[in-house]
Design a protein around this nucleic acid. Structure first.
Ligand code: NAD
Ligand code: NAD
Lengths: 208, 208
DNA sequence: ATTAGTTTGTGAACTAATTCACAAGCGCCA
DNA sequence: TGGCGCTTGTGAATTAGTTCACAAACTAAT
């Protein structure tokens, strides 16, 4: 299969969320044009994105909402349940662990780790905070798919090393540092300071 | 000035954070090549990004770390202090309000809003949660620059309308919905479900 | 003062992503 | 059955973004 751009994957994810809304409204079909309007893009873009994976629509009619949802879920790998661990039982970790939106999409938080003695052993929702030193051992049994890393920036490179050693192949990183990992490990960064700086730039350069 | 791509702004932001690290290490100059290695890009990219705004380096030497930091801060509009309000005093809102990393970069959270009677009036750090209905009135006095929106998806379009009516020109949106706002308002989305789906896609399509 | 060794800044070349534009397919109706 | 209105799927054209490649500028060493 040809290489798919990250921007394409982001849009697919967006289309899926729109389709779920449309489905709740009870509509049966949708055109590339409507999908484009919802996503702030063009109908050609929508059709091109989808055409990378097959042809799912009916000419003259559009796309069947449930069918396209299903295809997108399949493309995005949402058919299975993913096992997620959260590392760093702090403020962000707490918000994420308690967020129901993830499980709804098949991302199940099955463990939380921290290095702080004061936090280890505490109950967190239906989980107990475990010592980070046990991550590697636990991983052989639990087989985590994704690690969500929410530790202080200075410790995060070391944490990433442990995650890699534990054999986890995907990391969602909230610390404002660039992680260096082997090429078979995928990292996505959520860097809020960077987003705010993007807004700052936009505010500072309006009308130029 | 010519249009600057969002990807460029993200990289500038990244360079700045590297420069701050380098500065703490006490190094005085850095080459485009080293900066590129830190950011996982190429030296030509670094130089091209910077050349969009001027020429800040010395041939044969590289860039002065404090000078380039200063220039980047200026470019990104980090010279001033920004007034930020958080809307939605829930799990994510709480994590953000308590995060010190923002103020360090000039983003000062000066108010928190919610619609829940049970939360209104409560103290949050050095702030008191205010009723969202007062946002518009408060904005005329406080003159917020940026609204961080962390409300449930279903209420968020309405919240965005209120933010726009309050005259705020930049929104950082955490709800998994696409906001439609006038063209003079800039929106950045942080959509964690989308990031996880990106990882899911990567895990599902390795080696193809 | 000259030379050797670096590293910038930037047009030109290239690659990737988006948009155009239209033939072809489908449903509906007469 | 044929024609009309609509919408897809996709090569071609265009636009945007990245990388190449090299002259120019600077330091340090002799
Ligand atoms: N709080 C926010 O709103 C926010 C916003 C943007 C970015 N971030 C980033 O997210 C990360 C976490 O932020 P936070 O506010 O939740 O911090 P926090 O201090 O509340 O939590 C960090 C947790 O990580 C744990 N920890 C430290 N070292 C560890 C290690 N080696 N292994 C395992 N656990 C370890 C700490 O014990 C603590 O419980 C930071 O990198 C921060 O910059 C946070
Ligand atoms: N918690 C997470 O880790 C997480 C992760 C990803 C995305 N999100 C998204 O962030 C948003 C907030 O999530 P959360 O977990 O903090 O939810 P939450 O329920 O803890 O908090 C939401 C808050 O918004 C308030 N609110 C509701 N309607 C409002 C209105 N019209 N005006 C002002 N305030 C209003 C509620 O009273 C509540 O205090 C949601 O859209 C969620 O999907 C959260």
């Amino acid at each position: 299969m040809k290489r798919i751009a990250e921007s394409t994957v982001r849009r697919l994810s967006l289309y899926l969320s729109f389709l779920e809304g449309i489905d709740r409204q009870g509509l049966k079909t949708i055109s590339s044009d409507e999908l484009a309007r919802l996503g702030g893009t063009t109908s050609a873009q929508v059709r091109k994105d989808l055409s990378l994976f097959g042809s799912f629509g009916k000419r003259g009619l559009g796309y069947s909402v449930p069918e396209l949802s299903g295809k997108l879920r399949e493309i995005l790998g949402l058919g299975k349940q993913w096992r997620v661990c959260i590392i760093g039982a702090g403020k962000i970790g707490a918000a994420l662990a308690r967020y129901r939106g993830f499980a709804e999409r098949g991302f199940n938080v099955t463990a939380v780790y921290d290095s702080d003695e004061a936090k280890i052993g505490k109950r967190w929702e239906n989980l107990t905070v475990r010592p980070i030193s046990e991550l590697e051992k636990d991983a052989t049994k639990q087989d985590f798919d994704i690690a969500v890393v929410a530790t202080p920036a200075e410790n995060t490179p070391a944490v990433a090393k442990q995650v890699v050693r534990a054999g986890i192949k995907a990391i969602l990183n909230f610390a404002p540092v660039q992680l260096s990992v082997p090429s078979d490990v995928t990292v996505r960064n959520v860097n809020m300071a960077m987003e705010l700086e993007g807004l700052s730039f936009a505010l500072s350069n309006r009308g130029e």
